[in-house]
C-alpha cells in the first residue's frame, strides 16, 4: 500500500510538472532592424492558437514565442512564419523559461553594458 501511495505521488508530481512546463521557442533573426517592419512577425505568431505571448527584441535580434500550457509548435513552423514575414532565422532553440524571464535577462544584460 505504501509503495502504491509513493508511486502515485511520484507520478502525479511528474505529470503536474509536464502539464505546467513552460515552453518558449527562441529564434535569432537576421534583418530585424525596424519595429514597424517587424510587426509582421509578432502578428503572425500571435495568430497561432498555441501562442501565449510573443517577445521581440530588435537589439538582440531575438523573437521568442511562449506556448500555452500543453501546446506544441515545431521549430520549422516558427522558422517558416518568420521567413514569410521577410526575415531569416539563423538559429532556433527551445527554452523552459517564460518570456517574462527571458525579457528580464536581456534587460539586465543591457543595463550591465551601460
Amino acid at each position: 500500500m505504501k509503495k502504491l501511495l509513493f508511486t502515485s505521488l511520484i507520478l502525479s508530481t511528474l505529470l503536474s510538472n509536464v502539464a505546467f512546463a513552460t515552453q518558449t521557442i527562441k529564434a535569432n533573426v537576421n534583418g530585424m532592424v525596424c519595429a514597424f517592419c517587424a510587426q509582421g512577425i509578432e502578428k503572425k505568431m500571435r495568430a497561432l492558437s498555441q501562442t501565449k505571448d510573443v517577445y521581440v527584441n530588435l537589439k538582440q535580434r531575438v523573437v521568442a514565442v511562449e506556448l500555452k500550457d500543453g501546446q506544441t509548435l515545431s521549430n520549422d513552423t516558427v522558422k517558416d512564419l518568420i521567413k514569410d514575414a521577410g526575415y531569416e532565422v539563423t538559429s532556433i532553440e527551445v527554452s523552459e523559461h517564460p518570456i517574462a524571464q527571458i525579457k528580464a535577462g536581456y534587460e539586465t544584460m543591457e543595463k550591465e553594458k551601460k
Binding site: G31, C37, R61
Partner: peptide, 12 residues
C-alpha cells in the same frame, strides 16, 4: 514586388 532582400545580422 520585392525583387531581392538582404538580411544581415544588424541591417537589412
Amino acid at each position: 514586388r520585392l525583387l531581392k532582400r538582404w538580411n544581415m545580422p544588424h541591417a537589412q
